[in-house]
Nucleic acid binder design. Structure first.
Lengths: 357, 357
DNA sequence: TTGTAGGCGTTATCAC
DNA sequence: GTGATAACGCCTACAA
């Protein structure tokens, strides 16, 4: 009958108008209604108006589920995010989401909780729902996830890293280089005992690479090494404070601390203030991510600015271009980073003197 | 032919196995395959195994779009969030999302950018996609949004406020009461000139109510009033710092500042430190939201803890219960709040003396 | 510019 | 326990 059955919150049954109802009321064929909605300019103005009236009269809402089935495209992108409670991932997604909206696509969201197997389950569900493309955070995925995506030839974009073997496309920056450069900067300012706080590296190649970049610079610039200089902790201000106490307890002579996240750095800075450790005079601190809070801290925090929003929106346009059949020239796009030097790593007077001698 | 045509990233065409292909290979009817997947216990073990083998052999991935059309349910909830770049909304969503996942539902996401008309567009698209339920942030919606949702009898939950006339259901807390209580607490500690920083109140009833709660308490407790005590600013640490300079320039005698967000409060606190204003001795500062950073600041920040995650997950279970046809006894659920008193509003010695005299 | 026919891949329904 | 049949509501393809 062209009417959908709907049982709603009130329990009553409602008949929902379908394209046939609209067509009948407008005195045209269903196909003409469909066209009037998809390609208005291919329908005469008169019929268009009759149809518009009929739509208004019936309260017709097109059924995209049926359209999707028939046209074999869902106008939907599936996105896997570790968690929303993390400004950087949220910013990537926000930029991505805007790019989609601009072109009529929608976002289906899944949380992986940093677990690759969780991601795998979500991707499988995305495929079943016939998403037109997939967005993955990071470059750490199970073999099965990669295989599913490739075998089904689903346009895919990986965010935040520069994988050597991308599933399909990737947009990000070099986590290794960024960490290397921060450490180099600290070395060049005269700091010799540079500690590192990262978040967990398990199944998180961004943290792994940042740690690797740090280690490479420590080696290249002959900085002091000590296993106690490196710590992995949860993404938590308090954990950072706790770890700072451990660090200065074990190595009171540490002169700089590089944190691979601005909140970690903020937590360490706050704890330093409580311990009476002067920043940067007694201890320099550098962060990562370039969050808003970094420039507002006292002292303001040296950090690495990541073009978060831009990475997300670039990923969106790349993915949609590929879906539209355009050739994507570059499959892995490096959006770069920028080190922002601020007060928290200013070379203290004492070091300046030593260095000059 | 039971095969889907798929054109993927490589441009080649792939024939995707359908339920008929699996059925043929397993020597059963398509319906039996469908049942084996939906209600395994209604199919004999033998057939089940044959089907499993056939599925593995064909690489069959069920087409949920077709299922959705046929079964008239999408197992999808549409959620409208103002923006992800805001920890509190992200936390609500995270809790909500987990509740959905536990029951096999998925989340379709839309950003409204705090614009009710943007929300309206998104909701219309959600309806077209036949979501089984809708999640809205806040209680400020256009008349058309409300009408669409009600006319179509879509289970809906509004988050973060306690609307008097909910579209359907709501989970949140009293923003008015929370702000009132914070202001009362400041008044009882002896502060008389209490300023307020909120974010924009346009189309945001949460901020409107917090401001109203503040004003009511100012009146009830006879605090000093001055239009210059109240400011609306963007959700930005730097804007908070800027506004603090304005405030102390105009009213150097202000003795307390209530910010309706912890980041605003942090921005004000950092600026106070730079200006040499002692907190709480010269100026008390209170925040809102109970973010992690609050307890780590120096001094630690008095704030209002909102059960963010719990609000989200409760909203999820309520919505799914209603979709499942269960009666939802309480349509508006107040999840409460808790004022956490910390160092930033400790009664300073000077005030204690005055009060005692 | 408009219409007809057929099918998209699955599940509801009822029969066996 | 299993299967045949008929939708689900729209769009592709082709015809007029």
């Amino acid at each position: 009958m062209g009417m959908e059955n709907v049982s709603g919150s009130s329990g009553r049954r409602v008949k929902r108008a379908g394209i046939r109802d609209v067509a009948r009321l407008a005195g045209v064929a269903p196909m003409t209604v469909s066209r009037a909605l998809s390609f208005p300019h291919r329908v005469s103005i008169e019929t268009r108006e009759k149809i518009a009236a009929a739509i208004a009269a019936t309260g017709y809402i097109p059924n995209r589920v049926a359209s999707n089935l028939s046209s074999n495209q869902t106008m939907t992108i599936g996105a896997v995010i570790p968690t929303l409670r993390n400004s950087i991932a949220a910013d990537f997604t926000e930029g991505f989401s805007r790019a989609l909206k601009a072109r009529g696509y929608h976002l289906l969201l899944g949380n992986s909780d940093f677990i690759p197997e969780g991601e795998e389950t979500i991707v499988a569900e995305f495929l079943a729902r016939r998403v037109d493309g997939v967005y993955l955070t990071g470059a750490t995925h199970t073999a099965k996830t990669r295989k599913m995506l490739r075998d089904n030839a689903i346009p895919t974009v990986e965010i935040a890293s520069l994988p050597e073997d991308p599933i399909d496309m990737a947009v990000g920056f070099s986590n290794f280089d960024a960490a290397y450069e921060v450490t180099r900067m600290l070395a060049e300012q005269g700091y010799r005992r540079v500690a590192l706080f990262t978040t967990f590296t398990k199944d998180n190649e961004r943290q792994v690479e940042r740690q690797a970049g740090y280690r490479a610079a420590v080696r290249d610039f002959g900085l002091d090494t000590d296993p106690r200089f490196v710590a992995e902790l949860e993404m938590d201000l308090k954990a950072a404070g706790r770890q700072l106490r451990v660090l200065v307890g074990e190595r009171p002579d540490v002169d700089a601390l590089f944190c691979t996240g601005d909140f970690i750095a903020a937590g360490a800075l706050f704890e330093a203030q409580r311990l009476g450790i002067r920043v940067p005079d007694d201890l320099a601190i550098a962060g990562f991510e370039g969050l808003e809070i970094a420039e507002n801290l006292n002292p303001s925090l040296t950090t690495v600015r990541i073009p978060r929003f831009e990475i997300g929106s670039r990923a969106g346009t790349m993915l949609l271009d590929r879906i539209a059949g355009k050739d994507v020239e570059q499959r892995v796009v490096d959006m770069g980073f920028e080190i922002i030097k601020r007060g928290s790593t200013a070379t203290p007077a004492t070091l300046r003197r030593e260095t000059a001698s």
